[in-house]
Write a protein that binds this DNA or RNA. Structure first.
Length: 499
RNA sequence: CGGGGUGUAGCUCAGCUUGGCAGAGCGCUUGUUUUGGGAACAAGAGGCCGCAGGUUCAAAUCCUGUCACCCCGACCA
C-alpha cells in the first residue's frame, strides 16, 4: 500500500473539525468515554496537562498563592445566593439527589435515600469557596487571601468536543480576597498577565489580552478579562479568563472584614482559571497535516531515540550506546526540568515507529544505528522541519547544542503562530466591509471601532456569528467612530468567529 | 433542546431497498523472508449486527421505542 501523503486524513483544509479529532486520535491524547460528554485523557495527553500544571503552579506560588482543595459537591442553596451567577450556571448543573442504591423487585439498582437538600456538582467554586472565605476572613490582617485549587468541574454542555468543551474538565481556579478595590483589580490583571506569559512563553501560542463586553462576562463578575488566541482555521479561542468580582460575591456571601478604622467592610474578590481546553488550543495552534506538533517546553518527552538494530552485528552494543546517550541527555536542564528522553525499542517496523512519533509531535527524533555508532554520532530529525531533512550530528555536539535546538524549535513555533495570526488579522473601517468580510468564509481577527452598545453586538452575532472577543488592553487607544452606529469610539475592539 | 447523519470484528466500512449460514480491508497472534521513512507471504484468533420491544416459520435487514456519537444551529472555559 502506498503511504498517504499526509499522516492525518482529512487534512486541515479538507475538513478542519474532522482533522482536529483525528490528530487527537493519532497522537493518542484522549478518547471519548462511556459517559456522555466526558473524555478519558490518555498518558500522552495527561503528560501535557501535568506540564501545564507544573509550570503554572510555579508561577502561582511565585506570586504568593497557596493551593487548597474544596468539595466537589455544593449545596444547592449556595448557588442561589448570587442572582447573575444562578442565571449563568443553573442550566448546566449536574444535581445529586440521592445517596444510596437499592435493588428493586427485578434486582435493578435504583436511587434511594433522597437527600434533604440536593447537591450540585461544582460548575465552578465561587460559592463554596466564598462560604469558607467568610469564615476565614475577619480582619484586614487576614487579607489578601490568595488561594488556588486544581480540580475537576462539571458543566452539562449540550454539545461537546474533546478538550475544547467537555462535560467534565480539569482546571485550576484561583480565588482571592482583598481589602481594596485597587488591589483586587491589580490581582485580576496580574493573573491575566501570567496567563499571557504562560501561553506565549511555554505554549508558544500568541494571545491578545482584553476585557470582555457585558454580554460575554462571567456570571456575577464586574469585569472579565481573557486571553484570546487565533486558531489555524481563523476562529478565536478564549483560552483563559480572569474575573474582577467586585463586592458582588462578598455581599452575597457575607465576606466581611474589619479595617484599621474599626469599620466592617465587604472584601473585594477575584477568580481566574484555565482548563484542559488549553490542550485543544495547543493542538489547533501548532499541529499540522502529519499530526501533533509540540512546543518543547510543554512536551511530555523532548527526544525519542530509535535504535536501528536489525542488521547490526551486535544489537546490544547499539542499545547500550543509546542508553548511555539517554543518560547523558537526561541530566541536562531545559527550562526548569530535565531533558526527557524515550528509547523506543519496540519490535515493530521502523517506518511505523517513526510515524507514530511524528503524529505524537515529539520535538526531536534520533535514529541510532551501526553507522552512527561507528562515527559516534546521531541521526536527527526535527518535528518542525520536513520529514526528509534528517542530518547526522556528532554525539558530543548534539549533547552540547540540544537545549539550544529545543529553544529554536520553541521560538520557531511561536514565530510561525504569530505570523499566522498576523496574516489572519485586519483592520476594518466600515460596516459594509465588515459584513463583506465575515459573510461566507470570512474569518480571523478584525479590529474595528465600536461604541459599546450591547444591542449592536447581538445583532452582529445574529447576522454573522461574529462576537466581540475582547476590548484589547494594550496598543489600540485611538479616537474614532463606531462603524455600526457612527457614535464616538475610544478604541478599536477585537472581533472574530469563535469556538 | 431543534434540524440532518451514523451505530455490523480493535479500526474503517459493505450487506438492509427485495427478510433465508455474519462479510471485506486494515489491525492483532504465530511462522518465514524482510527492515536507515507507513514491508511481503502463509496460517490463525476475533462479532448478542448500539439497546429494548414488536411483526414473522425465519430479522443485521421490516415496525415502534430508546441510547450514544458526528455535523449544523441555540448555549458555553
Amino acid at each position: 500500500m502506498a503511504a498517504p501523503k499526509t499522516a492525518i486524513v482529512p487534512t486541515r483544509s479538507e475538513d478542519y473539525a474532522q482533522w482536529y479529532q483525528e490528530v487527537i486520535k493519532a497522537a493518542d491524547l484522549a478518547e471519548t468515554s462511556p459517559v456522555r460528554g466526558c473524555m478519558v485523557i490518555k498518558p500522552w495527553g495527561y503528560g501535557l496537562w501535568e506540564n501545564i500544571q507544573q509550570n503554572l503552579d510555579a508561577r502561582f506560588k511565585a506570586t504568593g498563592h497557596k493551593n487548597a482543595y474544596f468539595p466537589l459537591f455544593i449545596p444547592l442553596s449556595f448557588m442561589q445566593r448570587e442572582a447573575d451567577h444562578v442565571e449563568g450556571f443553573a442550566k448546566e448543573c449536574a444535581v445529586v439527589t440521592h445517596h444510596r442504591l437499592e435493588p428493586d423487585a427485578d434486582g435493578q439498582l435504583q436511587p434511594a435515600g433522597e437527600l434533604e437538600e440536593p447537591l450540585i456538582v461544582r460548575p465552578t467554586s465561587e460559592t463554596i469557596i466564598g462560604e469558607m472565605f467568610s469564615k476565614w476572613i475577619e480582619s484586614y490582617r487576614d487579607l489578601p487571601l490568595l488561594i488556588n485549587q486544581w480540580a475537576n468541574v462539571v458543566r452539562w454542555e449540550m454539545r461537546t468536543r474533546l478538550f475544547l468543551r467537555t462535560a467534565e474538565f480539569l482546571w485550576q481556579e484561583g480565588h482571592t480576597a482583598h481589602a481594596t478595590e485597587q488591589e483586587a483589580v491589580d490581582e485580576t490583571l496580574q493573573m491575566l498577565d501570567i496567563y499571557k506569559e504562560f501561553a506565549e512563553n511555554t505554549m508558544a501560542m500568541p494571545v491578545i489580552t482584553g476585557a470582555k463586553s457585558e454580554g460575554e462576562r462571567f456570571p456575577g463578575a464586574v469585569e472579565t478579562y481573557s486571553i484570546e488566541a487565533m486558531m489555524q482555521d481563523g476562529k478565536a479561542l478564549q483560552s483563559g479568563t480572569s474575573h474582577f468580582l467586585g463586592q458582588n460575591f462578598s455581599r452575597a456571601q457575607d465576606i466581611t472584614f474589619q479595617n484599621d478604622n474599626k469599620e466592617v467592610e465587604f472584601a473585594w474578590t477575584t477568580s481566574w482559571g484555565v482548563s484542559t481546553r488549553l490542550i485543544g488550543a495547543l493542538i489547533m495552534s501548532h499541529a499540522d497535516d502529519d499530526g501533533l506538533v509540540l512546543p518543547p517546553r510543554l512536551a511530555p518527552s523532548h527526544i525519542v531515540i530509535i535504535p536501528i538494530t536489525f542488521k547490526a552485528d551486535d544489537p546490544d552494543a547499539i542499545l547500550n550506546y543509546c542508553h548511555k546517550l539517554a543518560a547523558d541527555l537526561g541530566v541536562l536542564n531545559y527550562h526548569g526540568r530535565n531533558v526527557t528522553v524515550e528509547i523506543d525499542n519496540r519490535d515493530i517496523r521502523g517506518g511505523e515507529k517513526t510515524w507514530g512519533w511524528v503524529k505524537k509531535g515529539i520535538p526531536i527524533r534520533l535514529e541510532v544505528g551501526p553507522r552512527d555508532m561507528e562515527s559516534d554520532s546521531v541521526f536527527m530529525a526535527r518535528r518542525d522541519k520536513g520529514h526528509k531533512e534528517k542530518q547526522g550530528v556528532p554525539r558530543e555536539e548534539f549533547i552540547t547544542t540540544v537545549t539550544d535546538i529545543l529553544d529554536e524549535i520553541q521560538q520557531g513555533l511561536f514565530d510561525r503562530a504569530v505570523a499566522r495570526r498576523n496574516e489572519a488579522t485586519q483592520t476594518i473601517d466600515s460596516k459594509e466591509d465588515f459584513y463583506k468580510h465575515f459573510e461566507g468564509d470570512g474569518s480571523g481577527f478584525v479590529y474595528a471601532h465600536f461604541c459599546g452598545d450591547p444591542a449592536v453586538e447581538d445583532e452582529i452575532k445574529g447576522d454573522l456569528k461574529v462576537t466581540l472577543r475582547c476590548i484589547p488592553l494594550h496598543g489600540h487607544d485611538e479616537e474614532g467612530t463606531c462603524i455600526f452606529t457612527g457614535k464616538p469610539s475610544k478604541q478599536r475592539v477585537l472581533w472574530a468567529k469563535s469556538y
